[in-house]
């Protein structure tokens, strides 16, 4: 595992992956397992009485009529993407800025390696880590679906997980780029978290507020779940937007890091 920066970065997270697996399983059980007990006429009519501004905060639509509608609104509209974004920002900010702050970047860069290659190794580790989480999520949801006997397509479920992972990767690339620019973990996490918050608010309120409507598509969150991949399958164009954004941010990371002084 200690052959390359890529594998070593994943090796560093081996315990953390275990905790993610436990957490995601518990969350899946809780979220999907809850469906049979809340898919009742009483609860539906209660939800329907809530103001739309409030329900929008929790998810795009509160359709409880179908299991996939429920899971899409309750999980893949808010919780899922946020989890992926959290991992992305943690991994992206730790990549360069994290090593720099801990002071380990000197011995790493003293090796015969191009700086861009170091960034790419860290990026690929973040992408693979994200896919590992997406797989955990998919597997634990799939098991829960069987346990509580829901009518959900495994392939669509995988596509929804993938879509969330792509969003997480885009925000991870943003954190990576900020870390490459300044070498400060706080700057990287803070900047990426601020963008996440703004993007989430825009995505949430744009459908409700007429004035914000034109800005809806500026939010990366829009491209993760607006097309409801759990119900309709992944939207290739939306996925392409997230991937394109990621590539731009990766290039920016490389350019920023290549020319900058590394802090002691």
């Amino acid at each position: 595992m200690l052959r390359s920066i890529f594998t070593k970065t994943l090796w560093d997270q081996r315990r953390s992956f275990l905790w993610w697996a436990i957490g995601l399983s518990a969350l899946s059980l809780y979220t999907a397992g809850l469906y049979p007990s809340i898919a009742t006429p009483e609860f539906t009519s209660y939800v329907n009485q809530l103001p739309t501004a409030l329900t929008a905060l929790f998810g795009e639509s509160f359709s409880l009529a179908t299991a996939e509608g429920y899971l899409n609104a309750y999980f893949f509209d808010l919780m899922g993407p946020i989890l992926f974004v959290i991992y992305g920002i943690a991994a992206g900010s730790g990549a360069i800025a994290g090593e720099e702050e801990r002071g380990t970047l000197d011995v790493l860069l003293a090796n015969p390696l191009e700086r861009w290659l170091v960034v790419v190794h860290k990026f690929v580790a973040m992408v693979v880590g994200m896919f590992i989480l997406a797989f955990f999520l998919w597997a634990s949801l799939a098991v829960t679906v069987v346990l509580v006997n829901l009518d959900i397509d495994y392939s669509r479920l995988a596509q929804a997980c993938l879509s969330g992972a792509l969003l997480g990767i885009a925000f991870g690339a943003l954190a990576l780029a900020l870390g490459c620019l300044r070498g400060s973990r706080g700057f990287s996490i803070g900047g990426a978290a601020a963008v996440t918050l703004i993007a989430y608010v825009v995505k949430t309120y744009a459908p409700l507020v007429e004035a914000m409507k034109p800005y809806e598509k500026l939010s990366p969150f829009y491209y993760a779940n607006a097309a409801k991949p759990l119900i309709n399958g992944i939207n290739v164009e939306h996925a392409a937007v997230l991937i394109g954004l990621t590539i731009i941010l990766l290039l920016a990371s490389v350019v920023a890091f290549q020319r900058r002084d590394v802090a002691v």
Partner: peptide, 16 residues
């Protein structure tokens, strides 16, 4: 990179 290939380096700051 070509230079680093031929250098062994001991940092003053021991953050490993």
């Amino acid at each position: 990179v070509a230079i680093h290939k031929r250098i062994g380096y001991v940092p003053g700051e021991l953050s490993l």
